[in-house]
Amino acid sequence: MTNEAISLAVILAMAATTYVCRSFGYFLMGYVPLTPRVRRGLEALPGAVVVSIVVPGAVAAGPAGIAGVIAGMVVMAVTRHDILGLLVGCAVAVGVRSAGL
């Protein structure tokens, strides 16, 4: 195979891998009976996913990430407006970065 053909094959394999990830959890839950325990686990899942993305991501991004996340959450808690929280959070992160922290 030429390199171009292999690149194409790799892209298709990436797409297939990603689709398996997208559908597998849904598929699996079709075979797990929805007992109260499983339901409580599923209910805890969204928050757990979000926490697992946000905190390590903010830590890896350094002071700007941590300050931006905290600012966004404070604005959201006060105003209940997610877009406003996002804008203020990003503004704070830009500010911290331009201050050279």
């Binding site: 969204p46 991004a61 990430g65 808690a77 997610d82 959070g89």
Partner: peptide
């Protein structure tokens, strides 16, 4: 894109969404 915190948009938005999940 880092200069405009565009790399942080997703993380900060997720953090905001966490608030009503509380």
């Amino acid at each position: 894109p880092r200069r405009y915190a565009l790399d942080l948009v997703m993380i900060i938005f997720f953090a905001c969404i966490l608030v009503p999940l509380w």
